[in-house]
Every structure is written in structure tokens, then in C-alpha cells.
């Protein structure tokens, strides 16, 4: 469904992605793990079209999209839950969700909103509250809900467990599993490698802008280097 080949990207003259190649197949959860500054966020931004690439190709459903603007990529079916949630803080929970369906405005959103509420019941009681007033966990729920409102085929998640209490992390992971079971394809970026590997089908390890390792989640989990560097074993 997503196929990235030899992608390079830079901030100014400093290249931070040095030719990344990876693919995500329909229905998979693929996780991308790596240390601070490895380039995970940069790669997701490149996929969503908010970070220019300097080389390589990005194909979605067989179609090259690297020259398409960010809003076109959302329209194709790529949604992102960005690092740090990035909610519209002054707008209400409801408006954040409605804006998630910006490209489908005018459509009847009742069933979509009902689905988000079923997934995250706690959001309903906060309906009219500004997003900025929510707790960290609630913000993450809302960020995921907002991305789902676009009805994506591929969901990119950037460190959804960051800064959450352990029970919240479990909840988020179970939601991601449930989304997969519903047929959504997922690319999950995590620093919390044990959590990510527990739900992923396959994994890539990104080190300073390069894919250092890839394989099934089980293989990666068993890899000696990964166990030392990312799993603390």
C-alpha cells in the first residue's frame, strides 16, 4: 500500500534521511523504532507531504505521490496523528473532530462521530471543551479521533504513547489493534519499542537516517542488538 524508496530529506543543508526504503502492505501494522533524532518524525512528515524530500520516491497504492501537496495526500487516504498531538487548542473537541473531516465537509458526519465516541467514550463528556484543556491521554484520543475523521486507508502514528500513564498506553495500543482488525493499515512510530513490537506485524529500526534492520516483529524482538539498544534486556 505504501512503498518508499531511497528517500532523502534535509533541513537546510543538513541531510537527516540518507536513503530510506520501506514498505507497508494492506492490513499490516508496521512499526518504525529508533532513538531520539533518528529521523522518524521527518520520515512521517515526508510521507504526509509537510516535509520536502530531496530524492527518492513515495508510492501510495502504486501511485507516485511525492510531488503531490499535503492536502492531496490526505484526500488519497493518508492521515497522520502527529508527534505531540498538535491539536487545535482553542477549538472545542467537537470542532477538532469536524475539522478532521475537512476534505469531506458537507458529508453527513453523524456516523463517523458516533464511531469515534464509541472508540473513546471519555471524549463525549468533554464535547464543548477547548482541546487545550484536555489531559494528555484525552488529547491523544482526540488526536487519533481527528485523524480517523478523514476516513484514511493508511494511518501514520507518531509516538502515540509518549507522555502517557501506563494504563493509558495500554488503552491506546488496544485501540490501534482494534483499528487494524477493522481493516486499517498502520505505520506506527515509537520509542517505546516493547509496546510497539507487541502489536506490530513487521518492524524497521531507523538509525541516524538509515534503516539499520528490518524484519517480522518476532525476529526484531529476538535480535541481540535490538534487545540491548531498544528493549533494555
Amino acid at each position: 500500500m505504501l512503498s518508499i524508496e531511497n528517500v532523502t530529506s534535509a533541513y537546510g543543508r543538513i541531510e537527516v534521511l540518507h536513503g530510506v526504503t520501506l514498505h507497508v502492505e494492506v492490513g499490516e501494522i508496521v512499526t518504525l523504532i529508533g532513538a531520539n533524532g533518528a529521523g522518524k518524525t521527518t520520515l512521517l512528515h515526508a510521507i504526509s507531504g509537510v516535509q520536502p524530500i530531496t530524492g527518492g520516491t513515495i508510492k501510495f497504492a502504486g501511485m507516485p505521490i511525492e510531488k503531490r501537496p499535503a492536502h492531496a495526500r490526505v484526500a488519497f487516504g493518508i492521515s497522520q496523528v502527529p508527534e505531540g498531538r498538535q491539536l487545535f487548542a482553542p477549538l472545542s473537541v467537537k470542532d477538532n473532530l469536524r475539522l478532521g473531516a475537512w476534505l469531506r465537509r458537507g458529508a453527513d458526519l453523524k456516523s463517523d462521530i458516533a464511531r469515534i465516541c464509541a472508540l473513546f467514550p471519555m471524549l463525549e463528556s468533554m464535547w464543548e471543551k477547548p482541546a487545550g484543556a484536555l489531559s494528555g491521554g484525552q488529547q491523544q484520543m482526540l488526536a487519533i479521533g481527528r485523524a480517523l475523521m478523514a476516513k484514511p486507508r493508511l494511518l501514520l502514528l507518531d509516538e502515540p504513547s509518549m507522555g502517557l500513564a501506563p494504563n493509558m498506553v495500554d488503552h491506546v495500543l488496544s485501540v490501534i489493534r482494534a483499528l487494524k482488525d477493522d481493516g486499517l493499515t498502520i505505520l506506527l512510530v515509537e520509542q517505546n519499542a516493547p509496546a510497539a513490537l507487541a502489536i506490530a506485524d513487521r518492524a524497521y529500526v531507523l538509525e541516524t537516517g538509515r534503516v539499520a534492520l528490518s524484519g517480522t516483529a518476532a525476529d526484531i524482538k529476538a535480535d541481540r542488538r535490538v534487545r540491548e539498544a531498544y528493549l533494555g534486556l
Binding site: V50, S79, F88, L99, A150
Partner: peptide, 16 residues
């Protein structure tokens, strides 16, 4: 308002 509050997020949800 969304664009003003968070331009990156606005682009990520498909606002031109």
C-alpha cells in the same frame, strides 16, 4: 482558526 492555532496540524488534516 485552526490554521492560525497550528499550521502543521492544519496541513496534516488536509486544509490547503
Amino acid at each position: 482558526i485552526a490554521t492560525s492555532a497550528n499550521r502543521l496540524a492544519a496541513r496534516l488534516i488536509g486544509i490547503d
